[in-house]
Every structure is written in C-alpha cells, then in structure tokens.
C-alpha cells in the first residue's frame, strides 16, 4: 500500500487570454453566419410580402373572370381569362421536356457507363459550357433558325407564322439538355462500382447493367435532375417571349404563337407600368401564381426524391 494522498492538485479552467481571443472570434463567426442564413429567409419572406397583397387584391377584383380563354388585361375593355397562359406554359414546358428528357438521360447514361474516362473528361466540361449559353442567344437561334427554317416549312397544321410554341419548346429543350445530362450523370457515376460488378457477374450486358441496375440505384439523383430541368423550363422567360411571341392565343396547335406565364411578366413588366394600373396588378397576380406553382413543384419534387432515397439506403 502506498501513501494516502490528501487534498487536490490545483487546476485553472478559466480561459487564458489567447483562448479568450479564439472564443471571441468564434462568437463573431457564429453571428455572421446566422445573419447570412437569416438574410435568405428575409428576402424570401419579403418577396412574398410584396407580391401577395397586390396579387390577392387583383384576384378579388377579377373574380371568376379568371377562368376564361381570352387574356388581354392591357386592352380596353380588359379581359382576364388566364387559361391561354396556362396552355402556353404547358405546351412550351412539355415540348421542352419531350426533347430534353430522352436526349439528356441518354447522354447521362452514355457518360456514366459507356464513355471512356478520357472522353468523359472532354465532354463533361463542354456540356457545362452549353448550359452557360445566354438564353437571349438561344432565343435568337429559335427566332431566326428554328422557326423560319423548320417550324414554318415543315409543321403541317395551321398558318406558318414567325412565332411558335413548338420552336420555343424545342429551344428551351436545348437549354435544359445539359442540366439533365450533367446532374443525372453525376448521380449515375456515383453509383458504387460494386453494384455494376454484381450485375456483370450475373451475366448482364452493359446495357442491362446501365438501365436495370445503375439507373435504378441512381434514381433519386435522376429525378432531381428532371425536377431541376423542369423548374428551369417553367421559369424560362426570354426564350418563350422571343420565340413563341407575345400573343396569348388559346390553341392546341403547337405551331401557333403562344404566351407563357413568365413571358407575360417579361412582356408587361417593363417599368412603365403605372402603380395600380391593370398591367401593374396583373403582373403581380401572375408573379404570385408562378411563385405558388414553383413552390408546389419543389415540395412534390422533394417528396419524390426522399421516397427514392429511402428505397436506396
């Protein structure tokens, strides 16, 4: 047995001057980051607060007139039937997705499972450059190439015109192909090699491995890519305005000019709309509608992604 110790060793736990400085820095950092986070929330709330009062007031004034097929709020007498803007939006987005989903997904699968390492290294940055082309340039391409040389010449239905939803949808499709290809390729390339090897070891061909295993395993990322592309097409204003024209025609012929929701804001929201005027009120209304629809898509999209992610993990 050793000696029995009585009493305690004395220790100092209060911070030294050096530690005090470090703790202060850490406090400042914390508040700076909190401020940055709060800002984005404040901005969002601010946008909602500035949009909705006017939007709701306008909505109350318009009432049930909104369910109509003629949109002419800037004319006398004004007409507030919003359906043409919806059909215009739906046509442009649907055509864009019809073009971009097959092409984008095929490109993503090619990059993740077929392309050699070197080819992928070259193609991937090119795709990202494509995603960076200004939409005005794409709009010009639609207005001066796609519409006159293809839609007017070959579209069989209706009168050939300078503007068409078909051309706008097609060019919007070009805009979102790189988004789908790049984001979906990231998701598919992140699928572990073990998953591919397991499928190959069962006698699957490369196509079967890519389509039945890799694609399924990377589905949450693929869905995210599609939602992102959809949102981009939905909110695209410049191309819709330049290529589909500014005529809100209620029609089922994609070869006709149409106007999308966002194109109306781009068309009417040009600064000289007087406060309280019809133009002013209606752009707020359409803005609020766009905001709500995007919000719904985001919520649904997140649900879908969460569902597939659950299935994977």
């Amino acid at each position: 047995m050793g000696e029995v110790k009585v009493g305690h060793k004395s220790v100092l736990l209060s911070p030294s001057p050096h530690l005090s400085r470090r703790l202060n820095t850490q406090r400042v950092a914390r508040y700076t980051m909190l401020l940055a986070t709060t800002m984005s929330v404040i901005v969002t709330v601010g946008i909602v607060a500035s949009l909705f009062p006017t939007a709701v007031r306008t909505m109350i004034t318009i009432g049930t007139q909104i369910i109509g097929i003629s949109w002419a709020p800037l004319f006398e007498p004004p007409e507030y039937g919003i359906l043409p803007l919806f059909t215009g939006t739906i046509f442009i987005v649907a055509i864009a997705m019809l073009v971009a989903v097959p092409v984008g997904l095929a490109a993503a699968i090619f990059l993740s499972d077929y392309a050699t390492f070197n080819l992928r290294r070259v193609v991937k940055p090119i795709l990202e450059i494509l995603a960076g082309i200004p939409t005005v340039v794409l709009g010009l391409f639609g207005l001066y190439v796609v519409n006159p040389l293809y839609v007017e010449k070959y579209w069989p239905i209706g009168e050939p015109l300078a503007y068409s939803a078909l051309g706008a949808g097609f060019v919007t499709g070009i805009l979102i192909v790189p988004i789908i290809a790049s984001v979906a390729d990231d998701a598919l390339s992140a699928v572990p090699r073990a998953m591919r090897e397991a499928a190959y070891a069962l006698g699957a061909t490369r196509r079967e491995v890519a389509s039945k295993v890799v694609f399924n395993a990377g589905l949450s990322g693929v869905v995210a890519a599609l939602i992102l592309a959809f949102a981009r097409a939905f909110g695209e204003t410049t191309i819709a305005l330049m290529v589909a024209g500014s005529y809100p025609k209620f029609t089922a012929n994609p070869g006709d000019p149409m106007m999308s929701l966002s194109a109306f804001i781009g068309f009417a929201g040009i600064g000289d709309a007087e406060v309280g005027s019809n133009a002013y009120n209606t752009i707020f209304l359409i803005g609020a509608i766009l905001f709500l629809i995007t919000l719904i898509f985001n919520i649904v999209g997140n649900r879908i992604i969460a569902k597939y992610r659950e299935a994977y993990e």
């Binding site: 699957a204 395993a217 993990e313």
Partner: peptide, 22 residues
Amino acid sequence: FQKPNPFPKSIYENVAFGPKVN
C-alpha cells in the same frame, strides 16, 4: 464479392435479376 452488394431492390428482385436478364 468482398462487401455484400445487394441491389437496392427487394429480396425477390435481387434473386430474380439474373434469370430475368438471361
């Protein structure tokens, strides 16, 4: 393989995968 690598599918679908592709 070294690390168990089932597909993110059901138990049934994991086993059925090979016969289905073949």
